[in-house]
Amino acid sequence: MKIVVNGEAAETRSASLTDLLTELGFADAIVATAVNGAMVRAARRGETPITEGDRIEILAPMQGG
């Protein structure tokens, strides 16, 4: 199905957010996630389904002022 990950179009077969993170190589990364503008806590990623057209944000610690 077609989704948008960090602003870029992507194609996935992952059923859950946890699966998607693994598919993208973020399985062990320290990240925060949001689906369609709402935060999804790490503990809820396994039960969060991915559906067609979802907008996923995967955020990490970065430099800031």
Binding site: N6, F26, A60, P61, M62, Q63, G64, G65
Partner: peptide, 8 residues
């Protein structure tokens, strides 16, 4: 120190 959150 200040830090931010940005797309990985």
């Amino acid at each position: 120190v200040t830090v931010s959150l940005r797309r990985e």
